[in-house]
């Protein structure tokens, strides 16, 4: 499964669990406006670490926070490739 599909599936699952209404998951969707709160993102990052074996945000030396969903997916693709 591509990281994109893994990520979007998980986002939908977490949103449903937490009764959040999601905006359409396009690459230019700003994460803070997606409908998920920071707890949902924390859960997303933890579940992705278990599925993909990576946490690009804790692994990187400098603090990096993706702004859009596209940035978010690319940080995983980048970490997988690295």
């Amino acid at each position: 499964m591509s990281s994109r599909l893994t990520i979007t599936n998980l986002i939908e699952e977490i949103a449903a669990d937490h009764n959040k209404t999601l905006k359409p998951l396009s690459d230019d969707l700003v994460l803070l406006e997606s409908g998920l709160d920071s707890l949902c993102f924390a859960i997303l990052v933890a579940r992705l670490e278990d599925k993909l074996g990576i946490d690009p945000f804790s692994a990187s030396e400098e603090a990096y926070f993706p702004v859009t969903l596209g940035d978010f997916i690319r940080s995983y693709d980048h970490a997988v490739a690295a």
């Binding site: 707890l39 924390a42 933890a46 945000f57 804790s58």
Partner: peptide
Amino acid sequence: ARKSPITGSIVV
């Protein structure tokens, strides 16, 4: 607790 880059910790 599990460390989280977003909330400091999360519950597992």
